[in-house]
């Protein structure tokens, strides 16, 4: 049944800032503002209308919300004040939670690698991150990419912009506190979900 609102209600209640989706008036500013416009299938306002129309599978399996680069243009321009950037990220996460997001989706993979890298040291370990990203499609491909970039990497190393830490061993000061914060955040999130 089209326009079965159960999916929409689920999104309104459970996706980050999802309740705002009700308020979209389909003006198209978000779509026109997005620098990734040529790359997605559905613009934010299209996603929102699809959600209202109950098109759960199409939305959750869509790659469109993974395209957001957080430039915030849509969000500052939205005449209805929707926090579109947040909503779009929220939808991506919602798709993950609903186990509909493709595990191989590149942005999703990137996001996962980035997060793990950051969580490990409390900050980004550039060399480890780069290495891991280069290797996502296998070692030969990674080596090839690495060779292409070697001049730049060398100059960054020389100028101290890149640290020689391939295993990402460095830790921020107060790393334990950082870990505790993340733990607490997860607990809060969990509690919120249960309630």
């Amino acid at each position: 049944m089209a326009y079965d609102l159960s999916f929409a209600k689920d999104v309104y209640e459970n996706a980050e800032e999802g309740h705002w989706i009700k308020m979209c008036m389909q003006c198209g500013v978000c779509a026109g503002s997005c620098p990734l416009g040529p790359h997605w299938e559905f613009s934010p306002r299209q996603l929102f209308q699809m959600i209202r129309a109950g098109k759960a599978e199409e939305v959750l399996k869509s790659e469109s919300m993974w395209m957001c680069v957080s430039c915030y243009h849509c969000m500052v321009r939205c005449p209805r004040g929707l926090p579109i950037t947040h909503i779009v990220h929220g939808l991506a996460r919602f798709a993950v939670e609903k186990k509909r997001a493709d595990k191989d989706q590149v942005t999703r993979r990137f996001a996962k690698i980035l997060w793990e890298n950051m969580e490990r040291g409390g900050r980004i370990g550039e060399m480890a991150l780069t290495t891991k990203l280069y290797m996502v499609n296998g070692i030969p491909d990674g080596v090839k990419k690495g060779m292409e970039m070697k001049d730049q990497a060398m100059s960054m190393l020389k100028s101290g912009r890149l640290k020689m830490d391939p295993l990402h061993l460095s830790r921020i000061r107060g790393h334990a506190g950082f870990k505790a914060m993340l733990k607490k955040a997860r607990e809060i999130e969990q509690k919120k979900r249960e309630s």
Binding site: C27, G28, V29, G32, S33, H73
Partner: peptide, 24 residues
């Protein structure tokens, strides 16, 4: 065109304004 334009730019040579957005 049913669309709220997202932004305007200007062609620096012709001074033509360029309207940017999505036709909904």
């Amino acid at each position: 065109i049913k669309s709220k334009p997202a932004s305007l730019e200007e062609n620096p040579n012709t001074k033509d304004p360029i309207v940017i957005g999505e036709d909904t």
